[in-house]
Simulated scan of single mutants.
Amino acid sequence: MKSNVTTNRQTAQPVILISLFIGLLAVSFSAIFIEWSSAPSAVIGMYRLWMSVLLFLPFALKRWSEFLKLTLRDVFLVCLSGIFLGLHFLFWIQSLKETSVASSMIIISLEPIFVLIGSVAIFHQKVTKTGILCMLCAIVGCVVVASADFGKGGEHLWGDMLSLIGTLAVSLYMLTGQKVRGTVSGTTYNVLVFFVAGLVLFLFNIATKTPLWHYSGRNWLMFALLAVISTVLGHGLFNWLLDTVSATTISMTILGEPVGAIVLAYLLLGQPVVLLQGVGGVLCLIGVFWFLRTNPSHQPNNEENPPSQEANAADGRDRPEGFDASGA
């Protein structure tokens, strides 16, 4: 019996590794699809989110009873979470229009650090000395990355700032989501939050009189690729893999997204990486990698913040707190 189990694991291992690579490649293409689109940032984000809603909706409707269980508090938190996610896409996508893929993606990798800071402030989560060193290493790395953009003009620095604001917004989205994820499954939560986030961007477009239609076929293709490949295939594949691998493994893999995006930007967009960006990027990624390896809140089934049994039963798997199919 033990021999059969070992054989099954050995057979599944290549499938898992290939799936992790496909998921990483899919999310890494997110920045490339945005760069290939000439549409305004809020339009790109709106259609990416709403197209993703349409793709997730058939699965969410199978759990329609979860919608009926939502309390007024849950609805408020879903709306608040959606607002933060909408702001994240607004600022982060615009950052890619202003600065390089390398700078924007390295800065957004700070998200786990900001989530930890928020958890300390809101949930009184304890932070170790090692965690503080990780944060300092990552922050220093981002400062070095930003310093590389000083000689490129104010536009690049503004892009770095937009990426930082977008990272703060997605961190608040993750923290808010922790309060409501015990009520609904991941698919239902994503449908609700994605719809609200898309609505935020829709209202922004209306307020700024940004055209909602009359975009080229290339732009509509990019909207669809962002939804199908980067959101559903990329992050959705990571969600599916949580059945067989730990949340830490997923976190480590997603950490490779900035690296993948930078390599793709070099190959497909001709964007070189200067020395300071490389040094700062390495420092930042080491800090975040070290943090994810040592911070217990990123381990599955954590005792301090155990995933809700009801949500796990509805989803058919154990999920780490706040993990979902959003992200960059």
Rank of each mutant, 00 (worst) to 15 (best):
28 S>P: 15
71 T>Y: 03
63 R>Q: 15
110 L>Y: 00
59 F>M: 15
58 P>H: 05
107 I>G: 00
44 I>L: 13
31 A>H: 08
37 S>M: 12
42 A>Y: 02
94 Q>H: 04
88 H>M: 06
75 V>L: 12
27 V>R: 04
91 F>Q: 03
70 L>S: 03
112 P>A: 02
29 F>Y: 10
107 I>C: 01
79 C>F: 12
77 L>S: 14
68 L>H: 14
62 K>W: 09
36 W>T: 05
102 A>Y: 10
101 V>G: 09
69 K>R: 12
105 M>W: 00
69 K>N: 09
53 V>D: 00
48 R>C: 07
32 I>F: 10
56 F>S: 01
57 L>S: 02
44 I>F: 10
61 L>S: 01
67 F>P: 02
81 S>F: 11
43 V>Y: 09
108 I>P: 01
110 L>R: 00
29 F>Q: 09
47 Y>I: 13
105 M>A: 12
104 S>L: 13
84 F>W: 14
94 Q>W: 06
89 F>G: 03
40 P>Q: 06
112 P>M: 02
69 K>F: 02
32 I>V: 11
36 W>E: 11
69 K>E: 12
65 S>Q: 15
93 I>G: 12
46 M>Y: 08
78 V>A: 01
65 S>H: 15
68 L>W: 14
75 V>C: 13
54 L>Q: 07
91 F>K: 09
97 K>D: 03
88 H>W: 03
68 L>G: 04
97 K>Y: 08
53 V>P: 01
69 K>H: 06
61 L>Q: 03
108 I>F: 04
97 K>I: 06
45 G>Q: 12
106 I>M: 08
55 L>H: 05
94 Q>L: 05
93 I>P: 07
104 S>K: 11
71 T>L: 07
35 E>A: 13
72 L>T: 13
81 S>P: 14
43 V>T: 15
33 F>T: 03
82 G>F: 08
106 I>Y: 00
106 I>S: 06
85 L>Y: 01
75 V>N: 10
72 L>G: 09
93 I>S: 11
40 P>W: 01
42 A>Q: 09
54 L>D: 03
92 W>V: 04
92 W>E: 05
92 W>P: 01
83 I>M: 08
77 L>A: 06
85 L>A: 02
34 I>G: 00
89 F>V: 09
53 V>H: 08
60 A>W: 10
67 F>G: 02
78 V>R: 00
35 E>R: 14
34 I>A: 12
111 E>L: 00
64 W>F: 15
86 G>V: 00
58 P>C: 07
101 V>C: 13
71 T>M: 06
47 Y>E: 01
108 I>N: 04
66 E>Q: 15
42 A>E: 05
91 F>S: 02
72 L>W: 10
26 A>H: 03
87 L>S: 05
114 F>M: 13
63 R>T: 07
87 L>R: 03
100 S>G: 07
96 L>C: 14
108 I>T: 08
99 T>I: 13
70 L>K: 04
64 W>G: 02
38 S>I: 13
95 S>Y: 11
62 K>V: 11
57 L>P: 01
54 L>A: 11
88 H>E: 03
37 S>W: 10
55 L>V: 14
30 S>L: 11
